[in-house]
Design a protein around this nucleic acid. Structure first.
Lengths: 171, 171
DNA sequence: CGGGCTTGGTTCAAGTTTGAAACAAACTTA
DNA sequence: TAAGTTTGTTTCAAACTTGAACCAAGCCCG
């Protein structure tokens, strides 16, 4: 089949998207590296844990929610564990598995750094979007995420919001 | 000032965006690694060169268009040069500068792999968006890019489109 | 001319990511 | 229940990224 190239409108959208996503990740990474001493991804991992019942999650589960590979997560958790922000625990019900749990120190880091992070996200994104655009962004992102199999409408936990919780666990 | 947290709508949009961008970059990286033997960023660098007059650009200029640091670009160009896809040339008018130029082999790689890349982008993004949504995506991305200083509406060259050109250069 | 500041690029070490391979526990089935 | 398969996680080497430090070549003025 003869390639269906992008239309001029699609090209413009694609270029704009690429530029924005690169600049955005860069800005967020820099801010978090500054204030929290870790890249965005690591912050997200902590946030995901914080969103989970009992502040703990199986590695595979955490990897899925964070949209990263298990191997990448292993490395990240090892580092976070060294920093004392996460603790690894064996899973009693399935001796193969291991569980990552947020420590008190981890919670503290989130509490301390969440405001600065939200501020950055606001300044870069939401302060410039209308209500409609926020809705459009969600819709478009959801469609893309879904197309990439990993659905994306799922009630998966996520970054920023950071808020307390609780409940039992292990799976 | 007491932190202005994200509204529920904003949170949903943000989470969806984060998931989509991670999944998308991943998918594109995998496809290009497969078919072109290089990550998305490297492909973009080639595409940017191909878009430039005479297929050549000063390093700093190329870094700006690619939205990456000069140091990152130095590394990338070194690799691409090893692969014979790019050639470094001294800049006659400013002996400090160096110019990256696409080689014939580089052009060939683009010609060969562009269709597969477009197809991937289509399958992941544009095949699922309405015309309005394409416009919304451009608008939103442009606003964000601009907020991050690097403006983003600029007629900067970019990824995908890949097409021939020509003209003198060096700057 | 001769510092001193700026600009264009590269280098270096430390940190991160990738993907394939290795392990080990759990499951399946003959 | 032993062999074979699947599942959960880690390991390892190679590739990539980051940020600070460095080296030149231009620039600016006294």
């Amino acid at each position: 089949m003869t390639t269906r190239w992008l239309t001029p409108e699609e090209q413009r959208a694609w270029r704009a998207y690429l530029a924005a996503s690169l600049l955005l990740e860069d800005a967020i990474d820099r801010q978090l590296q500054q204030d929290a001493g870790m890249p965005h991804l690591y912050y997200s991992i902590l946030a995901n844990l914080s969103d989970a019942p009992e502040h703990r999650l199986r590695m595979t589960d955490l990897a899925e929610r964070s949209k990263i590979t298990r191997s990448r997560l292993t490395y990240a958790v090892t580092r976070l564990e060294k920093d004392g922000l996460v603790r690894r625990e064996g899973c009693p019900s399935d001796r193969r598995g291991s569980i990552a749990a947020l420590t008190e120190a981890g919670v503290a880091v989130l509490e301390r750094t969440a405001p600065g992070h939200v501020e950055t996200v606001r300044a870069a994104v939401f302060d410039h979007l209308s209500e409609e655009q926020v809705g459009q962004l969600e819709e478009i992102s959801t469609v893309i995420a879904r197309a990439l199999h990993g659905d994306g409408a799922r009630p998966a936990s996520e970054d920023l919001p950071w808020r307390r919780r609780s409940a039992p666990s292990c799976s």
